[in-house]
Design a protein around this nucleic acid. Sequence first.
DNA 1: CGCTAACATCTGGACTGACCAGATTGGAAG
DNA 2: CTTCCAATCTGGTCAGTCCAGATGTTAGCG
Lengths: 235, 235
Amino acid sequence: MAETHVLVAEIVPFLLSRGYGPNERAPSERELAERFGASRTQVREALSVLEALRLIERRPKSGIYMTTESASIEALRLYAEIGVPLSGDIVGEIVEVRRIQEIEAIRLACRRHRQENVDALRACLDEWTYVLEEPGRLAELDRRFHTGIVRAAQNSVLLRLVDLFYRMTERRRLFYFGDPERARQSLREHEEILTALTERDEERAVRLLDKHLSSAGRYWDYLLNGSPPAQTHPA
Amino acid sequence: MAETHVLVAEIVPFLLSRGYGPNERAPSERELAERFGASRTQVREALSVLEALRLIERRPKSGIYMTTESASIEALRLYAEIGVPLSGDIVGEIVEVRRIQEIEAIRLACRRHRQENVDALRACLDEWTYVLEEPGRLAELDRRFHTGIVRAAQNSVLLRLVDLFYRMTERRRLFYFGDPERARQSLREHEEILTALTERDEERAVRLLDKHLSSAGRYWDYLLNGSPPAQTHPA
DNA sequence: CGCTAACATCTGGACTGACCAGATTGGAAG
DNA sequence: CTTCCAATCTGGTCAGTCCAGATGTTAGCG
């Protein structure tokens, strides 16, 4: 009945909502199993995932303890995926880090990009105009464009990081592209960025990308202030 | 007999060494269980961890498939933890990303740091001289110093990232601090960096940190070239 | 009353065997 | 050679059991 993935999505909010503080002992495996109507086997699989993400610590023969503040970045992706609301502070920090990563990535990309990278980015933008009414496709293309820049930076580790951040913010981008006008504006800015990148004009590319990211970032703030802040959890 | 953690450490190298390519089907749970002398329960727990790290994909009723290139950054930490050799390319990329993160972090730290942050860093360096002969303690203090800078940047997301990179390179730092002379040199550089940070002299702090990281980075290359390259896996 | 030692209970770790239903595959029928 | 169907394989899930160390409670002693 309860796929492991689903169980994780139920247990995490439960642990967060109960306000189990750092180093506090959570309910036992057996109790969690009963509470969520799953077998202990399933609970243990779910917990092993949470442990891998450093959200909990399992002490043999003792219990399950909430982790102080050593949770992995992947935990934030999990939160986003299962819909745990993030505090405005965290969202702001995510935007800031994302900006740092992408700015440095485009710097490297200007120096290292190859023809194939430019071609891939070009293909993204060519397809763009045909899917202006499809938020899902747009979010996908946007991800491909931005990660395409990072790919051009020829650093797979940086690519993984940026990719992770896009996974984190997938839902928000889906909202963002709900408005075709915003999609058109994004396309214009992407075109400018691609031109600068192709010409290896580092400073201009950085300036354009920075502006592009700032506008998107502002929109996120708006989303957060516009909708009820909801119950947020410190991450 | 087979702790889950240990099982993971056995299964990962196995899957990598067998050269199971992307989208290729790995041995079944039952076969893995037999091969490693563990129960299917344990194998499933281990696999759920690998799935959370996007190293594999489990398709119900079908099989276990190797992931193309979407593995999480946490996977790299896992590799480092269980001793999977990383290619020189990957190590270089890690060093590059780490540099980007820490440089930007110290910029932010110069603008945002509070007295408590400086105090914490001061405490690190004060303790340093007393443990010059203890590589373990030095590696720990080094981590505390560098993450302390990021903490001063007041961005918990960036902190998690840098922390992750330090987890990745723990072994290397242990080697590095095997030589007390290198420890002393590190201390001198840390002192200079802390001074610049305290005076909020952003450009000087960046310059000093950059130099500091470069010297360490060079040493990593040396380590890699000095010791047999071993069998490396593309990550 | 306070402290300690012994005991009953709880907890995570691990294993076994079984059942389910969809995916896969190999062989029989056309 | 193609089509189709049944045996087999695979991951998903569950119930029950055993183990040994951690925990907490209680009884006894000073």
